[in-house]
C-alpha cells in the first residue's frame, strides 16, 4: 500500500504503543486489558461464525477489528455486548464477568456499541435520540416520570450535554428534525453521538465510516481520536485501511471466525497471514481509492476489485437481511 494518497491528515496524533506483553501473536496478552475473552464460540447450524480462543482488548487505546466480510466481526460484537449468546466461552469487561448478561446490563456497565446497520430511531427527533442515550435518568421510571418536577433539572442538563455533542458532530441544525430525515451518513454520526451520551468506558463501533460522506470522515476520525484522549477505549470494525492505519493503535485481524493476527497497524499490514486472509491478491490496491473516499487513479488491480465489490454489494442487496 502506498502512502501518497493518504488524505491530508489533520494533525497526526501520537499512537499509543507498548500495549502488549511478550511476543506478538494472535491472542497476545495486554498490559492493561479492558476485555478478556476466552474460548468464545458461536455456530449457526453447521457454520462456525466465531471461534476465538483468546482475545484481549487494550484499555484507553483504539483497536481496529478487521477481516473479510463474513469473518465474524459483527457476530463477535453481538456476543461481547450480550445481543447474542455464544455456544460456549466466557469474557470479562473491566473485571465483570459478562457471559450470560443481558445487553442492557452490559451497556450500563459502560460498554456501548453501535450497529453495522444503523439504528437511528426514525420517528424520534435528533435531540430525543440523543437524550435517550443518557444514563440513570430519574424520569425514566414511570412513577417519577409523572412528576416533572423530579426530572426537569436533570433533563435540562442532559439537553445541554446533547447540544454540545450535536454541535461537535455537526448535527445541531437538525436537532428538532425526525431522525428519519437524516442521510445515511448523518445517521451513523447520530448513532455514535447517542452512544457517547451514556459516557461509556468502551465504545464499540461497527463500521462507523460506511456511508459517511468523505467530507465528514476526517472529522469523524478526529472524534474517535478525541475519545481516546478523554480516557475512553475504542474498538471498531472498519474496511478502510487508511482509516485503520491512521487512527488505530492496535489491529486485530479475524478470518473465518478466528483471530489470525494482531499487532500495531504497520506490522499487521505486512503480516503474510493478513495478506492471505484479508487482502488476498489485492494487497497493492489502495482501498481508499476503491471506496471512492480518496481521489486517485485506479490501477487495473483496483478496477477488478471495484467490480468484485460492486458484484458483492448487489448480491448482498438481493439477499434478504438474515437477522430480524
Amino acid at each position: 500500500m502506498s502512502n501518497k494518497d493518504t488524505p491530508a491528515a489533520p494533525v497526526q496524533r501520537a499512537k499509543t504503543t507498548g500495549l502488549h506483553k511478550g511476543d506478538i501473536a494472535p491472542g497476545v496478552a495486554k498490559v492493561d486489558p479492558i476485555i478478556i475473552a476466552d474460548g468464545v464460540r458461536r455456530t449457526f447450524g453447521g457454520l462456525t461464525a466465531v471461534d476465538v480462543d483468546h482475545i484481549e482488548i487494550p484499555r484507553n487505546a483504539i483497536t481496529a477489528l478487521i477481516g473479510p466480510n463474513g469473518a465474524g466481526k459483527t457476530t463477535l460484537f453481538n456476543l461481547l455486548t450480550g445481543f447474542d449468546k455464544p455456544d460456549e466461552g466466557k469474557w470479562t469487561f473491566n473485571g465483570h464477568a459478562l457471559a450470560g448478561m443481558g445487553a442492557h446490563k452490559v451497556a450500563r456497565l459502560g460498554q456501548v456499541r453501535t450497529f453495522q446497520l444503523t439504528k437511528a430511531l426514525g420517528l424520534l427527533t435528533v435531540l430525543e435520540n440523543m437524550k435517550l442515550g443518557a444514563k440513570d435518568q430519574i424520569g425514566e421510571n414511570i412513577f417519577r416520570g409523572m412528576i416533572p418536577k423530579l426530572w426537569r433539572k436533570q433533563e435540562a442538563e442532559i439537553e445541554a450535554r446533547a447540544e454540545v455533542l450535536l454541535k461537535k458532530f455537526k448535527l445541531d441544525a437538525k436537532s428538532s428534525d425526525f431522525a428519519a430525515s437524516l442521510s445515511g451518513g448523518q445517521r451513523k454520526l447520530l448513532e455514535m453521538a447517542r452512544a457517547l451520551m451514556s459516557e461509556p468506558a468502551l465504545v464499540m463501533l461497527d463500521e462507523p465510516m460506511a456511508g459517511v460522506n468523505p467530507a465528514l470522515t476526517e472529522s469523524l476520525l478526529d472524534h474517535i481520536l478525541d475519545l481516546k484522549e478523554e480516557g475512553m477505549t475504542v474498538l471498531f470494525v472498519e474496511h478502510d485501511m487508511h482509516m485503520v492505519r491512521h487512527i488505530a493503535d492496535w489491529v486485530i485481524v479475524m478470518a473465518e471466525g478466528k483471530v489470525v493476527a494482531e499487532g500495531p497497524p504497520d506490522q499487521v499490514m505486512k503480516n503474510q497471514a493478513v495478506i492471505d486472509a484479508y487482502l488476498g491478491s489485492h494487497q497493492d490496491v489502495d482501498l481508499g481509492i476503491v471506496t471512492g473516499r480518496i481521489e486517485g487513479e485506479l490501477n487495473t488491480a483496483a478496477i477488478t476489485m471495484a467490480a468484485e465489490v460492486e458484484e458483492l454489494d448487489s448480491k448482498i442487496a438481493k439477499r434478504k437481511e438474515p437477522r430480524k
Binding site: 445481543f83 456501548v112 430511531l121 435517550l132 424520569g139 409523572m146
Partner: peptide, 30 residues
C-alpha cells in the same frame, strides 16, 4: 395519565422501543 407519562423520559424510552428495541437496549434500557 397517558399524556403525562408519554411526555416524560419514560415515554421517550417507550417510543424508542417502537422504533427499534435493539437500539434502546444498546443504550442500557431494560
Amino acid at each position: 395519565i397517558l399524556w403525562t407519562v408519554m411526555r416524560s423520559p419514560w415515554g421517550r424510552v417507550i417510543k424508542g422501543i417502537r422504533e427499534d428495541e435493539d437500539a434502546v437496549r444498546a443504550l442500557g434500557k431494560n
